[in-house]
Amino acid sequence: MTDPDDPSPSASTAPADVPSALLPLTRWGPVIAVLAVIVAGSITTSVPTVPGADWIPIDVSDVRHLAAYATLAVAVSWATRSTIRSHVRLLVAAFALVVAVGVMIELLQSTLPHRTASVRDVGVNALGATIGLGGYTVLVGLRSRLSASS
């Protein structure tokens, strides 16, 4: 039996058939995958555009930033959920980590001749993280309601 107050990773937070040696991968694998996509998209010379999207009132690049950083925020929250017990602390830590990644990506882009850094992008990334953390909070609430009703 596991201690519910023990913040260490345990088999109770992963499927029973996952060996304990793979638990870090099951938690952090999605974070690494999302980070890889963000970095790859951030250092490429050209990012594909959506044909005929001129009527959209928001820049398509902003939509990509929002989606990428919202997804990263959810992945980071999911990965740290058994380590950080307080939901508020988890949200603050995930937000800080995701925004720090966004800042580092912009700094990286400032060193590339074919890319430019943008404070605006950092803001859009932070908004994406906020949206993702809001979604994560809703999902956690739904999950706990479903568990309580069964």
Rank of each mutant, 00 (worst) to 15 (best):
I56C: 10
V119I: 15
A40G: 09
L139I: 02
I43D: 03
V18C: 01
P9S: 09
G134T: 12
V122H: 04
V124M: 06
S77I: 11
S110P: 01
L66H: 08
S42G: 14
E106M: 10
I105E: 04
A96Y: 05
T111G: 07
S118K: 07
T116L: 02
A36Y: 06
Y136A: 10
A129P: 08
T44V: 15
T26P: 00
A75I: 03
I131E: 07
T71V: 08
T45P: 00
I58K: 02
A40E: 05
V39S: 05
T45Y: 01
A16W: 04
M104I: 08
L72A: 10
A126D: 07
T45W: 05
R120E: 10
V31A: 03
V122M: 05
L108H: 02
A68I: 06
D5T: 03
P7C: 13
I58F: 15
R81H: 14
W28T: 03
S42C: 11
D59Y: 04
A100F: 07
R145Y: 14
S149E: 06
P57W: 13
A148E: 14
T137A: 13
Y69R: 09
V124T: 13
A33Q: 05
A40K: 06
G128S: 06
V92G: 11
S10C: 11
R145G: 13
A68H: 05
G128N: 08
T45D: 03
N125P: 00
T116P: 00
S42I: 12
V122W: 12
A36H: 11
V74C: 12
F95E: 05
P51D: 11
